[in-house]
Amino acid sequence: MVDEKTKQAIEQIRTEWKKGDDQRDAGLPVELPEVTRINDIAYGPDPKWNLLDIYLPKKTTGKIPTIINIHGGGWCYGTKETYQFYGLGLAKRGFAFINPNYRLAPEVTFPAELDDVNLYIHWVAEHATEYNLDPENIFLVGDSAGGQMAEQYVAILKNTVYREKFGYQLPSLKFRAVALNSAAVFLLDPGMIDGAVKGYFTDEILLKQRDLLDTEKYITADFLPTFISTATEDFIRDASIKFAGFLTGKGVKHVFKEYGDQEHPRPHVFLINQKDKIADQANDDEINFFKQFIVK
């Protein structure tokens, strides 16, 4: 049950964050000459939320390495339209980009959003041939709340015990690497589940499904190669630093990047901003990391 105070916090986030996102993206083109854009493909039964866009780079030969996105937004905000400019920017760099919606809190609670992620990942597996996507070279990206789900989904892919707890089946895709940008990892740490976030991870969920939220307990040495990014003014910066150390301890290949400095500070998930030169560099770094793992 989601209380009225949490619902009000969610409404405030939706209003304030959309205003900020609209200001950030004002004037950006929704079409790029280098990219073919296919909108509003249904991947599941919900006519509003089970939709995705595909952005395909034009100058490619053969099957296209593919990035599947899990957007952020505190589990209660965000759409594929919010992420369209970021996705077009990555497609321009030579990767297909899958840009989905998923259902949001408080209309749904954990693990419904991850169920949607699993659904659209399986959709990609089933429809890759139609769009010339390369099922042998799949990459996962998530930021903030989406970063938490990306971390969790990789753990599910790589750990049979954890996967069985969710009841998911392995998709017929070869995931090569993951990028976690300002990710809400270590979800059970103090302060992570608070305010509007309780609209998704309710007190009842925390009581009954706490084990499923302890993702790091199920991460093994064969976790995907990981690109971790944060920024000087990222309010959950410490979680990314901690996760880099955690992966070091597990022996997992990873790169950790912190962007900005005292004179040029950068905020949480700044790399979505397509007008920002430092974000541009961060996206180049991420793509270059992925390119190391493409299998010809």
Rank of each mutant, 00 (worst) to 15 (best):
Q12N: 08
R14N: 15
W17S: 10
Q23C: 01
Q23L: 12
R24A: 07
R24T: 11
D25G: 02
D25M: 14
E31R: 13
E34R: 13
T36V: 11
I41K: 06
N50G: 02
N50E: 14
D53R: 06
K58P: 03
K59N: 15
I68T: 13
C76I: 04
K80P: 07
Y83W: 14
L88Y: 04
L90F: 10
K92M: 02
G94R: 09
A96D: 05
N99A: 10
P100M: 08
Y102P: 07
R103N: 08
A112S: 13
E113T: 11
N118R: 09
V124S: 13
E130A: 11
E130Q: 14
E130P: 00
N132D: 08
P135H: 09
P135Q: 13
D143E: 14
A145N: 00
G146H: 08
Q148F: 00
M149F: 03
M149Y: 11
Q152K: 10
N159A: 02
T160Y: 04
K165L: 15
F166Q: 00
P171Y: 09
S172D: 15
A179H: 11
L180H: 08
L180T: 03
A183N: 07
P190E: 15
G191R: 03
Y200C: 08
Y200P: 08
E204I: 01
K208D: 14
K217D: 06
I219M: 09
F223E: 04
P225Y: 14
P225F: 08
I228G: 08
E233W: 10
F235M: 12
A239F: 03
S240C: 06
F246C: 12
G251N: 12
V252Q: 09
K253M: 12
K253Q: 13
K257D: 00
Y259F: 09
D261R: 08
E263P: 01
I272G: 05
D280K: 10
D285T: 03
E286N: 06
F289P: 00
F293K: 04
